[in-house]
């Protein structure tokens, strides 16, 4: 579907500015469902992970409330594993969405000089050295950070399953992931798992801040795009070619 003139929504903005706003369809349900599953599972994984590493003691003379809640470490570990399996399964669906939908594939264009120039521009904007940057479906800095977060999640999945399946090193899971234990020992996996978990947590904090900030500063429907799959933009974004189909058409939301 091409974008036709009559499909543009005309809006007047209170202080007298006028703009043509267009709704672009970008994110497929695979990406959106994965995103929110990831949010839920990462919250569960991070909080249970911290508790598993520094559990509260139950029993006589300890935390009375905990005794009543029956929050045993066994239970919390099982919750951690459940969330881990959900995250891994969602990640597989994310990969499927990546294959079938162009809007889910907004990754860095490492081999184009323009990408690096745009990256510098956007970074200057976020360092508060530049008032504004070009409009993007997804800006170069976001593209870089999302590929980084997927990398971090892959590390968490690999190290997590390696530790999980080592209960039986001779089993199928142990033979798939067991090689990770060999080079530096298993304690190293715990340390890496923790470092990466904190990186993901810090990423999430920055990510939420950036999205809210972008929503208020640019008013492009940044937050709602992860629910509706569409973004409302006043201009044709700079990287619009990344979501054109093979006939050069753009899908409008």
């Amino acid at each position: 579907m091409t974008v036709r003139e009559n499909q543009f929504v005309e809006t007047s903005i209170p202080n007298g500015k006028e703009a043509h706003l267009t709704r672009f369809y970008i994110f497929s349900p695979f990406l959106r469902i994965f995103h929110w599953l990831m949010v839920i599972s990462i919250i569960i994984l991070f909080s249970t992970g911290i508790v598993v590493m520094t559990p509260m003691s139950m029993g006589e003379g300890q935390y009375v409330i905990l005794n009543e809640w029956h929050l045993s470490v066994d239970w919390i570990r099982n919750l951690h594993f459940l969330a881990g399996f959900i995250l891994s399964a969602a990640f597989l669906f994310r990969i499927y969405g990546y294959i079938i939908n162009k809007g889910d594939r907004l990754l860095p264009n490492f081999f184009q000089m323009k990408f690096w120039d745009d990256l510098v521009e956007v970074m200057m904007h976020y360092c508060l050295l530049k008032y504004s940057h070009k409009q993007f479906l997804r800006n170069p800095m976001a593209r870089m950070s999302y590929i980084a977060i997927y990398g971090l999640i892959v590390v968490e999945i690999l190290t997590g399953f390696a530790m999980y399946f080592q209960v039986n090193p001779n089993g199928i899971g142990g033979s798939i992931f067991g090689w990770l234990v060999v080079p530096y020992g298993e304690m190293f996996l715990h340390v890496v798992h923790h470092i990466v978990a904190w990186c993901i947590f810090l990423f999430a904090a920055i990510h939420v801040y950036m999205v809210v900030r972008a929503d208020f500063m640019e008013r492009e429907g940044e937050i709602s795009s992860m629910i509706s799959g569409t973004k409302v933009l006043a201009h044709l974004p700079d990287d619009i070619n990344d979501i054109r189909d093979k006939n050069g058409k753009i899908i409008k939301g």
Binding site: S57, Q62, S72
Partner: peptide, 13 residues
């Protein structure tokens, strides 16, 4: 598994 730990080498746990 039950969450019963020794918090110190001298405590009841």
């Amino acid at each position: 598994d039950a969450g019963m730990y020794a918090n110190d080498f001298n405590d009841a746990g």
